[in-house]
């Protein structure tokens, strides 16, 4: 079993952090083989941001994502680049506050930025809300593994809000199942 997950959006949305947390959850707390990569360069300064995770039961050799199974998309520009030609059996989570297009594959609208602001007071939790959504939509890692990895990665004092963010993401997807 092998899954490829693509995160993309804008610089500052925590796109890379989300991929690192998911990778950490699967690698350290899920017993999986994981490779996480990201785009660097001018496109990673302020504008677009993209990262990817491969999670597999078997060793991963070729480290680059080729045809993702799961997408988390947080800007229209990112949708245009990565989301407009996805395979039919992929799953996409998109933030409807930023993305107006809708894909041909199964998708969930996760208004992560708006919910982070309204429920937790800060948009910085949007990426963890997305992770909660991915967890609910795919079961790609266990809740415990993901929570562990989130708590490893976030600043002290924000643990409770991050746990709530995971739950918000899960609930947003659950309501659309």
């Amino acid at each position: 079993m092998k899954s490829e997950i693509r995160f993309s959006g804008l610089g500052g949305q925590g796109i890379i952090t989300a991929a690192v947390i998911l990778g950490r959850a699967a690698a350290l707390y899920g017993g999986k083989h994981v490779v996480q990569t990201q785009s660097y360069g001018p496109e990673a300064r302020g504008g677009a941001s993209a990262s990817a995770v491969i999670i597999s039961d078997d060793p991963i050799y070729y480290p680059k994502v080729t045809d993702p199974d799961v997408y988390a998309i947080m800007s229209q520009e990112a949708y245009n680049k990565y989301g407009s030609h996805v395979k039919n059996d992929a799953v996409m989570l998109l933030d409807p506050g930023y993305v107006t297009s809708r894909p041909a594959c199964r998708f969930f609208e996760v208004p992560a930025t708006a919910e982070a602001k309204s429920q937790l007071g800060k948009t910085v939790f949007a990426n963890v809300i997305m992770l909660g959504g991915i967890l609910e939509a795919t079961g790609i890692v266990s809740y415990d593994a993901l929570e562990h990895a989130v708590l490893d990665s976030v600043p002290k004092g924000t643990e409770e809000n991050n746990k709530r963010a995971l739950a918000i993401g899960q609930e947003l997807v659950r309501s659309q199942l």
Partner: peptide
């Protein structure tokens, strides 16, 4: 750059 920037266990 490939090996330097990718994350693994």
């Amino acid at each position: 750059e490939t090996i330097g920037h990718m994350r693994e266990k």
